[in-house]
Nucleic acid binder design. Structure first.
Length: 815
RNA sequence: GGGCGAGUGGCGGAAUUGGCAGACGCGCAGGAUUCAGGUUCCUGUGUCCGAAAGGACGUGGGGGUUCAACUCCCCCCUCGCCCACCA
């Protein structure tokens, strides 16, 4: 029996598992096993794996292995989300091609994953920057385009005038370009969008099907979609006759309207300013505000506004109120215009105070009276209608439907629903992404690249440094093409797609990763999907998962799949932080993964991380492993398991009933724990079992069954150590990872003695060992006969006895 | 400002969902092994009183329900995350 030496054991099994092709998912239709799709969020190849990967993938791998041992045909694939800005920026910084940098990182991560012993089916490996992959990303774009779900429109973007490039919001630091410090301006650009808003209601409704998703993710998705019910009300501009709609959730407050406001981007603003004789001031305001970067809008004087000199007619009472343009109204939400009800909306209240506008209370809290002169904030709760003509005296919630009915009868409005969700801007003026497969023809406009001409290859010989437009626009050979419809000279679209597009469908591709004829084989997808278990970071709780759900519904509408939700169960691992802060290179607190693995072993890393706390919680590495030189506790435990199992293997003596009971109880508990991702608790139970086996051996007993079960239960959590013990020490010819998960005998798993707790007035005064089937009567007798109970009761009289056989008796005294 | 979640020893965390609070591990202390450090093994380890037996207190704070509360209800404090001018 050798000393536990993971650096010798682990690499040996990496190559052995390769030879035995242990983790290949079976495509054999005759395979009787139920299938299980265990998906881990794929990796972004920016450098080698770090501790965050270790946590996510240790959990995902444990589930995949556990389900395989429980008799499932498991699909556990891996790939890389390989397009995007970090690769481009790193490449620019190092002067190498993004492709080179990306594939080098992929190779490094792949090799680290193998060293970690992840149970991936490597035959399905993919990267989104492979032409064989993005060909189908482009195909999907064309499908959306054909259905009218991909369209172009002009939208404002952050623009750096010096670098001549569009910046993501994260690249704008305090209103300036993060690279050169130049103040950023707003610039309107024609961009591609996916019409995800068409699916807003379905995305919201189907959230109810996601029973096994974390509650907080469901909440975030709901809030992000942001459905509001209310009414659309038509106002007329007195001076010009223009009809303008507003959206409001409070049509009951229509009688409280004292002004009207347009967003600065609203198309009517300049026309109305001219009509009102304020064109000059309006233009000055618009120019100034539009030069302000989007992220600075919040910092602008939020209650600034300009009266346009025209008036809006309130449809319910014919009153004319002044019309303003103000930055606090957003063009992107509702209709880009709002009615101002200062008494009952806080933002309107502040605007009215800042601009000396009247405040009119039309909802009074019951039994109170708000006076506009003395109000310090808007009253936005329920109440009784006042000053509202026919609605006076009605409670405000009930009055809403009455107002809507009235508006509808009069043709001045209707019930309406508004969503917070916006269409998805997917075009990027960047090099390292999937080219948008569209050709712009002077005659035929936007023409999709025909399917047999996909992929539109990303050319290698491009000056990919940013500068004004998409780098692809500088490549004449790429840009100049002929129109697929008429053959006339035309120009390729030079934008690339947001990487979130690439990652919205990769789990479909895993089902038939080498299909050269289609994005995925519908039969393979029908067999494997939906995904049974998805594991990944909570930072993707909104965008990525929403996009995945959107794509799935589009594919359903295309008739390609028969389900509408892609992921049945979702689990978010916590972050690994250091000293209370997230790890980052700039803080210099990054802990590398592979040096730890090389020194202590992958199994030690896995157990350390999984044992540190609940899977969903953050782990502070500084608290878990404060001294990198000291032997980690997980390593010491695995060493004890190694020694203990080795000793048990050579012991012929019979096992005690006590140990057998303990073994079966542990199987029961650990099985439940692994089903619920409670790895930390599972490991603690295995540690207790290890200690029990140790004691049994020390007492001269055998421990064959216990040792075997321990090794099997260890397999999902510490796959190398378990394999070494199973095959080498316990002498099994087949891998532990192909063995059947141990089952427990319910009779044995039940304790044959339980502790009856004896309390007096709720305080523990004695304990007795009893049979689990002990009668209530016997418990009562034991309690009354107990010396500890008698001492505690003393001279007081006993009022009652609460008996919960076989757990507890509470003796309640009088007084 | 809105929404969600969490506060348990020196530390990470358990607690069959209302029934022995602190499992398991880290750390620390003492002992054994070792030339020594590390490793390994044994013992102890919530706080306070006590030599011990035993007792009192104890799950952020305050109140409540209950025979019994970390767990359920109300108020407050602190921290974390998400969304933040969404009409």
């Amino acid at each position: 029996m050798r000393r536990y030496d993971p650096t010798e054991i682990e690499p040996r099994w990496v190559s052995r598992w390769d030879e035995e092709d242990l983790y290949r998912a079976s495509e054999d239709p005759a395979d009787p096993r139920p299938r299980f799709y265990a998906l881990d969020m794929f990796s972004y190849p920016s450098g080698d794996l770090h501790l965050g990967h270790a946590e996510a993938f240790s959990g995902g791998d444990a589930v995949a292995r556990f389900m395989a041992m429980r008799g499932h045909n498991v699909l556990h694939p891996i790939g890389w989300d390989a397009f995007g800005l970090p690769a481009e920026n790193a490449a620019i910084k190092r002067g190498i091609h993004p492709k080179e940098w990306t594939y080098a990182n992929i190779e490094q991560q792949a090799s680290s994953f193998r060293r970690m012993g992840m149970s991936f089916d490597w035959t399905r490996r993919l990267a989104t920057c492979d032409p064989e992959y993005y060909r189908w990303t482009q195909w999907l774009f064309v499908k959306l385009f054909e259905r009218g779900l991909a369209y172009r429109k002009t939208a404002p973007a952050n623009w750096c005038p010096k670098d001549q490039t569009v910046l993501a919001n994260e690249q704008v630091i305090a209103g300036a370009c993060e690279r050169c410090g130049t103040p950023v301006v707003r610039k309107d650009l024609t961009q591609w969008f996916f019409k995800i808003t068409d699916y807003a209601q379905r995305l919201l409704d189907d959230v109810d099907e996601l029973a096994d998703w974390p509650e907080r993710v469901i909440t975030m998705q709901r809030n992000w979609i942001g459905r509001s019910e209310g009414a659309e009300v038509t106002f007329q501009i007195a001076e010009t006759g223009d009809e303008v709609e507003v959206f409001t959730t409070r049509p009951d407050t229509l009688w409280g309207v004292t002004f009207f406001v347009f967003a600065i981007e609203h198309p009517l603003v300049m026309k109305l300013a001219e009509a009102g004789g304020t064109a000059e001031q309006a233009k000055a305001l618009l120019d100034r505000l539009q030069a302000t970067p989007l992220t600075n809008r919040e910092q602008a004087d939020s209650r600034e506004g300009l009266p346009l000199g025209v008036h809006a007619i309130n449809p319910v009472n014919g009153e004319q109120v002044p019309v303003f343009v103000a930055p606090y109204v957003l063009m992107e939400y509702g209709t880009g215009a709002v009615m101002g009800v200062p008494a009952h909306d806080q933002r309107d209240f502040e605007f009215a105070r800042a601009n000396d506008l009247p405040i009119r209370v039309v909802v009074q809290p019951e039994g109170q009276e708000r006076d506009p002169a003395s109000m310090t904030e808007a009253y936005d709760h329920e109440g009784v209608m006042v000053g509202s003509g026919p609605l006076d005296g009605v409670r405000s919630p009930e009055s809403i439907s009455e107002v809507i009915a009235w508006l509808q009868r009069e043709g001045k409005g209707k019930a309406s629903v508004s969503f917070r969700l916006r269409d998805w801007l997917i075009s990027r003026q960047r090099y390292w992404g999937a080219p948008i497969p569209i050709i712009h023809c002077p005659e035929h406009g936007e023409v999709a690249v025909p399917e047999d001409q996909l992929p539109v290859l990303l050319p290698d010989d491009v000056d990919f440094r940013p500068g004004g437009e998409s780098p692809l626009a500088r490549n004449e050979g790429f840009v100049n093409v002929t129109c697929p419809t008429c053959g006339a000279p035309a120009r390729r679209d030079t934008d690339t797609m947001d990487t979130f597009v690439d990652s919205s469908w990769y789990y479909f591709r895993y089902c038939s990763p080498n299909d050269e004829r289609r994005a995925f084989d519908p039969e393979a997808v029908a067999r494997w999907m939906p995904v049974d278990q998805y594991v990944g970071g909570v930072e993707h709780a909104i965008l990525h998962l929403l996009y995945c759900r959107f794509f799935t519904k589009v594919l359903y509408d295309l008739g390609l799949i028969a389900f509408t939700e892609p992921m049945l169960r979702l689990m978010n691992q916590g972050q690994v932080i250091f000293g209370g802060a997230s790890m980052s290179k700039s803080k210099g607190n990054v802990v590398e993964l592979m040096p730890f693995v090389e020194r202590w072993g992958s199994d030690t890393m896995r157990v350390t991380i999984l044992f540190a706390g609940p899977f969903e919680d953050d782990i502070d590495w500084k608290l878990i492993a404060p001294d990198s030189e000291r032997r980690p506790g997980a390593n010491a435990w695995l060493g004890r398991v190694h020694a203990t199992v080795g000793e048990a293997a050579g012991r012929e003596a019979p096992e005690t009933n006590e140990l057998r009971r303990h073994t079966h109880g542990t199987i029961k508990g650990v099985t439940r724990d692994l089903e619920r991702f409670r790895f930390n608790v599972a490991i603690s139970k295995l540690q207790v079992l290890t200690n029990e086996i140790r004691s049994a051996l020390d007492a001269g007993h055998g421990a064959h069954e216990a040792a075997g079960a321990l090794v099997q239960m260890l397999a999902p959590l510490a796959p190398f150590t378990a394999e070494e013990l199973w095959r080498v020490e316990l002498g099994h010819p087949e891998s532990v990872h192909r063995s059947a998960w141990p089952t427990y005998d319910p009779e044995l798993a039940r304790d044959d003695r339980v502790t009856l707790v004896l309390q007096v007035d709720g305080k523990v005064r004695d304990r007795v060992e009893v049979d689990p089937d002990v009668s209530e009567e016997a418990c009562r007798a034991l309690a009354l006969g107990s010396e500890g109970v008698q001492r505690a009761v003393g001279s007081r009289t006993i009022a009652r006895l609460v008996v919960r056989a076989p757990r507890l008796v509470n003796v309640v005294t009088a007084g």
